[in-house]
Every structure is written in structure tokens, then in C-alpha cells.
Computed example of a mutant assay.
Amino acid sequence: MKGLIQRVTRASVSVDGETIASIDLGLLLLLGVERKDTPHEVDALLHKITRYRVFPDDQGRMNRSLEDCGGSLLVVPQFTLAADTGSGTRPGFSDAAAPDLARALVAEFVLKAEGELGQGRVVQGEFGADMKVALVNDGPVTFLLSV
């Protein structure tokens, strides 16, 4: 399981011209699920993301986590993160989870994130949809996390 997090001052997801999710201060998470992933990877990545210190403290150092700053989390399913880009000029997707598994693990991730961060602090894109993601990357601060 891979998660690309971006610290944002705002982010949103639109489908067919309609905004379906948006946040202000927080993290935009592009979430990639691989075939080998299980609920164990969900727990491990969620633990890492909610505690990863990417927000500035009073001295401007990245010492505060999403939990610490009270920010929101926008989860966007992103199967292309599971791509094999090791050779050639076309990505391979043999390591990506099948849609049913990916959908279930993304749903579990969101449910557990809501339980950990609180209702109203977690929103999500639409699995399998052609989404348009808009964001203001703060910093810019971007990290690729994997478990």
C-alpha cells in the first residue's frame, strides 16, 4: 500500500463538474492499493499518515502531525501509484489490487481514519471515477509513504 501525501491549505475533488469532497488545512492522500495488501497494511499506513510530522511548529519546523494540528484528510483512490515503472515507457499494473479488493481496503481505510480523526475530518474521492483534483500544496510538502 502506498500513500502520496501533500500538505495543503485547501484541496477538492470533482466528478462530472460537481465538487464531491473538499478540505481546508490538512493532507491530500493519493492512496494506491497493491494486490498483496491486507487490513494490516491499512492499519500501518493510517498510523503513519496521521502521525507523520509535516506541519510546522511555532519555530517553523515540521514537528506537528495531522492529529496535532487538527487538520482534515482528503482520501483519493489512485491505482496508478501501484504501477511498475521499472522498465520501458509504459507503466505496468500487475501489482495493482483487483478493483473489489482495492475498493474494500480504501473503504476500510476511510472508516478507520474517521474513527481515529473524528467525523467530519475525513472526506474522499469516488472510487473508479474520472476525478479532477484541485489543491494548493503548502510548502510544497509532498511525501511518498509505503508499508
Rank of each mutant, 00 (worst) to 15 (best):
A134N: 12
Q124R: 13
E126S: 10
L81E: 04
Q124N: 08
T89E: 14
V76T: 03
G88I: 11
C69T: 10
L81K: 01
A104V: 09
V110M: 02
R121Y: 14
T80E: 07
K112P: 09
V75R: 06
G86H: 12
V76F: 01
G88M: 13
R103W: 02
N137T: 07
A102V: 07
A97S: 14
A83G: 06
A96S: 14
M131G: 07
A82D: 06
L117E: 04
A102C: 08
L117V: 04
A83W: 01
G125Y: 06
P77E: 02
D100I: 00
G92F: 00
F79L: 05
G71F: 09
V110A: 08
G88L: 11
L101F: 03
D100M: 05
R103D: 08
K132G: 06
A97P: 12
S72I: 06
C69H: 04
V136T: 15
L101P: 01
L105I: 09
A107L: 04
L73T: 00
Q119H: 11
T89D: 12
E108S: 15
G118C: 14
A83I: 00
F109R: 02
L101N: 03
A102W: 07
T89R: 15
A113V: 12
A82H: 07
F93S: 13
E108V: 11
S72C: 11
A113Y: 12
T89G: 08
A83P: 01
K112V: 05
A107D: 15
L105D: 04
L111C: 13
A82Q: 08
V75I: 10
Q124E: 12
S87M: 06
E108A: 14
F79K: 06
D84K: 13
P140T: 06
R103K: 15
E126L: 07
Q124W: 00
G88V: 11
G115T: 01
A98I: 04
A104Q: 13
Q78Y: 11
